[in-house]
Simulated assay, not measured.
Amino acid sequence: MKYVTAVWDDGGFFVDPRAYLAELSKLRDQLPAGAWAFASDPAHYALGHGNSHCVKDLELSGIQVATDKSGGLTLEFAPNQWKHDSGLRISYSGVTHFSIDYEHSIGWMLVDTVLLDEILPDEDGGCVHEIALTDASITVRCADLQAVWGDAS
Rank of each mutant, 00 (worst) to 15 (best):
G125T: 10
V4E: 03
K56F: 12
G12F: 11
E118H: 08
V4W: 04
A46I: 02
S137I: 06
F98G: 05
P79H: 07
G34V: 14
Q146Y: 07
Y92S: 01
D85R: 08
A66F: 11
E118I: 04
D16E: 09
S86H: 13
F13G: 01
A152Q: 04
V114R: 00
V148C: 07
S91H: 15
G107Y: 05
V95W: 06
G62E: 07
E130Y: 13
E123P: 08
I119L: 12
W8E: 03
M1P: 07
C54E: 01
G62L: 12
L24T: 01
L31Q: 01
M1N: 03
S105Y: 15
Q64M: 14
G34Q: 06
H97I: 08
D9Q: 14
H104W: 09
T134K: 01
G87C: 10
V148P: 03
D85W: 11
G34E: 06
D9A: 10
V140D: 02
Y3P: 07
H44K: 06
L133Y: 00
D135M: 02
L110M: 14
V114G: 00
G126H: 07
I138D: 01
D29I: 13
H53I: 04
V148E: 09
S25N: 11
N80T: 02
G71Q: 03
S86T: 15
Y45T: 00
V114N: 00
T96W: 11
G48T: 04
V128G: 05
P42V: 12
Q64R: 12
A78Q: 08
C142E: 07
K26T: 15
D9S: 12
S105W: 14
L27K: 03
A19C: 09
L116V: 00
L75S: 01
H97C: 10
H84K: 03
Q64C: 11
C142V: 15
P42H: 13
P42M: 09
A39N: 05
S25V: 12
W108C: 12
A152Y: 06
C127M: 15
V55P: 00
S137P: 06
D57K: 00
H129W: 14
G62V: 15
T74M: 13
G107V: 15
P79C: 10
G11Y: 04
D10K: 10
T67S: 15
C54N: 03
L133A: 01
D85S: 13
N51V: 13
E123G: 14
K2T: 10
L88H: 04
Y3M: 09
F13W: 14
P79S: 10
I90F: 09
F38I: 05
V114K: 00
L24Q: 02
C127Y: 03
E118L: 10
A22N: 12
D10G: 07
V55M: 05
Q64S: 14
S137Y: 04
F77G: 00
D122I: 06
T96G: 10
G150R: 06
A19S: 11
D144Y: 12
D112W: 00
A152E: 05
P17D: 06
G94E: 02
G12W: 10
L110T: 13
M109W: 02
G125C: 10
D117C: 10
S25M: 08
H84V: 04
G125I: 14
E59K: 09
G107K: 05
H44I: 01
